[in-house]
Design a protein around this nucleic acid. Sequence first.
DNA 1: CTCCAGGCATGAG
DNA 2: CTCATGCATGGA
Length: 303
Amino acid sequence: MRVMSPSRAAVAEILQPMNSPQELVIPSGEFDLEQTLESGQCFRWQRLAAGEYWGVVSNDVLYVKQEGDQLQVQHGGGTAPINLADFIHRYFDFSGDYQAILRRFRRDRSFAHVAPRRASLHILRQAPFEVLISFVISANNHIPRIRSIIERLCRLYGSPLATSFGPAYTFPTPEALAQAQLEDLRSKCGLGYRDGYVQSVARTMAAQPDFGAWVELPTATLRQRLLQLDGVGEKVADCVLLFGFHRLAAFPIDTWVRRAMTELYFPGQTPRLRELQACAARRFGAYAGVAQQYLFTHYRSIS
DNA sequence: CTCCAGGCATGAG
DNA sequence: CTCATGCATGGA
């Protein structure tokens, strides 16, 4: 397990003092922190108040609070020196023109009926391995329970971080998780029957010499690789593509999105997943994953 | 207390 | 190929 070296921590302190909040100007009226963090794409953010969160991202603890078009951010501890503004900008994908994407979707009258006028949801740029394990755990599970299982995984197999929000832990590396015993995964983390999947995926990825190079693979190839993993079906693979590899054309179809697509485009029918995928690709194209997030959020909230 | 969840692997037809 | 079934667990 990785241990922070004192010298590196000292460098981090000098470059990025813990208590130096920054104000970042964000795209006007095209981002909603709360909606984005509560949209089911991430599991490790803790809500402090309305529009105010803290969480562990990679090896750093972040505090974020949205006030209109400003984002107040703070580095709350961590292992690596970072340029906070750049880090936040990349993580929340503020370079993406989500208003333009949404505007195009809204030409579809059915979609426009269930989507907001202003962009609110961004697709976060999360670590692939964290997304992979998180969505293997997500299968046939509740979101609150997914969150608690992940926190237990991090506490057991991640590295501790000193924070002003209490104890926090990084998401485990493939190598650390590959060492986990099945018995511990089940009894201490509460993984249930998914214990074998998590261990298998961790060991497979730890043994992948070129996991880092997967980001270069074409989406179709990457999807094939993911589907070979234990406990990874089409839905989980598409979640990893979308949330972990930022392949915005990926369109994960879960129970909510299935209901949404059926109600909007196949009323009274029972379409196959293939048909729904084709329909999404046709209507939403290269940014189908963004549309998927709006559909998921809308249909989950009205149920 | 019971119910059921951002599905998946497996086996039968 | 399509479809039914079992699945561990704990939050609601």
